[in-house]
Design a protein around this nucleic acid. Structure first.
Lengths: 198, 198
DNA sequence: ATTTGTAGTAGACGCCCGTTTACATGTCAA
DNA sequence: TTGACATGTAAACGGGCGTCTACTACAAAT
């Protein structure tokens, strides 16, 4: 194998920096407002390398989008505690400034037709479908979509009202309310109108 | 007064057509992806008139944003029935293809810095503040913001998954679930964990 | 030492953006 | 009828966009 000494010319390292820069910038400003020159500058790479390694800006966005998301581990687990896990995760995101990059990228992606398909697929595969699989009873898909819309709504609120908008809210209060909200849309028909409290 | 015969040169009519075209296009494609030339073409007007009558694209967007919203009449009324009114309105919007233009414009506005302030002000004045005013009890602002995020989340879902995504869902089912959801985030501390069913 | 292939670079290409300027045209008061 | 002013128009401006091409520089194989 070739030496792993300090390489200045390293395709993997460079494309990795490009990908990381794209992830950060797309999450911050959205797909449309981020230029390939911004990404290249942030990554310390030449603009042409983006098209060489990722073919186009849209394909680079697709690579960013399929990155790992913290939502997977939140959704998996016992369905009983799913509403509370979602609520805790989202309350934490709303309270802290930071948030799941993937969800932010989705929220700020915009309406460009060249990324619409991959965007929809990612929301399906990362949120709606995993949620649906963990829901017993009828109307599982509709309930999963309601929960998806609430998750996305948190991102929209943050985008519009700013990251500080819910910083001063009591995290415990948020978690309790969100638990009730997620319970209301996720619960099966038997306990659909029941309170989540023990 | 001047005659109201068929006038070809009519500032009010022309600027009105520009405003209407902008409203439609911004709601459909978002602020960033709509060009002033698209608006002018749709309005049957010259591009330069946009800047003459509205000063800039951003100010035109601001004019669009302060238009009337159907949400006002939904929020006003007895606080008791507020969750159900919000749920019925949103269920109707999700089921039908059409939706409140203002909410769509907000959802698709994007992240352009030149419209961030007016966007935030409009969400506050059209959604968060009216909701807060109608909520008794503590944490009224936090509860109003949760409801705002759910309203915006419906728009995000529609934007990402497409207008057909919830067309085949039972409107009655959606309304019931959304009533429970809005109740969960809007209810006062006394009945915060109670079911909305009679 | 020379060849070969790949990583990286500079710059241009064609296009579209929001905005502005200079000008034509219609309307109405004097 | 003639001027003044408001309305509408065509064309250009400067700039940024994603992408592509021609080129250099370097590392490894011959």
């Amino acid at each position: 194998m070739s030496g792993e000494s300090t390489q200045v010319r390293d395709r993997e390292a460079t494309s990795g920096r490009i990908l990381a820069a794209a992830r950060t910038l797309f999450a911050e400003h959205g797909y449309e407002r981020v230029t390939v020159r911004m990404i290249a500058s942030e990554a310390g790479a030449n603009v042409a390398l983006i098209n060489r390694y990722f073919e186009s800006k849209a394909r680079l966005f697709a690579h960013v989008l399929v990155g790992e998301s913290a939502m997977r581990s939140v959704i998996e687990g016992d369905p009983e505690g799913l509403p509370r896990r979602l609520a805790a995760h989202m309350a934490h995101r709303l309270s802290a400034g930071a948030s799941d990059p993937i969800v932010r990228v989705i929220d700020r992606a915009g309406t460009s037709p060249e990324i619409r398909a991959v965007l929809r697929d990612r929301v399906e595969s990362a949120l709606t479908e995993p949620l649906r699989r963990h829901l017993p009873g009828p109307n599982a898909r509709e309930r999963a979509m309601l929960a998806t819309s609430i998750i996305l709504g948190g991102g929209s609120l943050r985008r519009v009202l700013g990251p500080e908008s819910l910083r001063e809210a009591d995290p415990g209060f948020l978690e309790e309310r969100l638990t009730a909200i997620f319970t209301a849309c996720l619960a099966g028909p038997a306990d659909g109108a029941r309170t989540p409290a023990p």
